[in-house]
Amino acid sequence: MMTLTDIIGFTTDENISGRLHDLSHSNDVEYIVLERENTLRKRLRVTGDKGTDCAIALSRDQKLEDGCVLHLDDNRAIVLRMAQEHWLSVKPADSAAAVELGYFAGNLHWRVRFDGDIMLIAIEGPIDFYLGRLQPYLDDGRARVLSDE
């Protein structure tokens, strides 16, 4: 287990980017990929993409962000990457359905954003869970799913 207790800097930092570039030539940059929600944690046990068992324990005033560097020496670096977010695009049939759908999503505490008249629902678990809850809307045509990318 490798303990990581500080955010040293970011991949874009001038004094870090060059060293990361050099280490990448020898394939010595390891990435930890986290879902957005998990970047809020201050302590977590994760496995890097090269198999390193990592114990992250940050102070409460530090925050994991995409591109933060958790370890850097002459032989290796460990960098955090945020996983790509997936959104379920749902289009309500009319304004009445939109109001109802908005209330429904809020009541379930789903994280959403909007693109015109399309509601984008952040997928933070099995997609079947979301589709299951939306099924009554999809069955009677009050809404339809456009994509789940």
């Binding site: 303990t3 207790t5 201050k42 302590r43 324990a57 940050l58 102070s59 409460r60």
Partner: peptide, 11 residues
């Protein structure tokens, strides 16, 4: 001994 300089785990 466990990460003395960081805060306690919160569960």
């Amino acid at each position: 001994k466990i990460f003395k300089h960081t805060s306690p785990a919160r569960v």
